[in-house]
Amino acid sequence: MSAPYRQDMPPPGGFQQIRYKRNLPFRGPSGAVILAGVTAFCGYGFYRIGLGNLEKRELQRERVWSRIHLVPLLLAEGDRDAYRRQHAALEREKEIMKDVPGWEAGKSVYHNPRYRPADTMVVL
């Protein structure tokens, strides 16, 4: 008893494709894309820093000019006080040295008419 001869054949429609390719999941954007993205991001940041530096410069200019406008006022007030102290020091010197003959009160030790601020100050 023998089975009738039958040639073994592929299934109708052929075999399935052999899956030889690696089946890896998508791992995110490529290195080049990330690099480009980070560069763009940093570039924008640096651009803002540049704008901020320009703004800082303007803020500094504003600050400086606000002070420059006040300088005459503060200097005038300080000058009046300095003049008052000078005057008081002279009076004091006259009072202390009144018994010394030939003493010139307020005479500078330098032979120079240029103004020198007092080296010492009496806080009163």
Binding site: P72, L75, A76, E77, G78, D79
Partner: peptide, 21 residues
């Protein structure tokens, strides 16, 4: 006042201008 101060730094020199300021 500042021009006066540039002339002479002596506080007695610019008292009038200082009062105006």
């Amino acid at each position: 006042f500042m021009l006066c101060k540039a002339e002479n730094r002596d506080p007695a020199h610019c008292l009038k201008e200082g009062r105006r300021v």
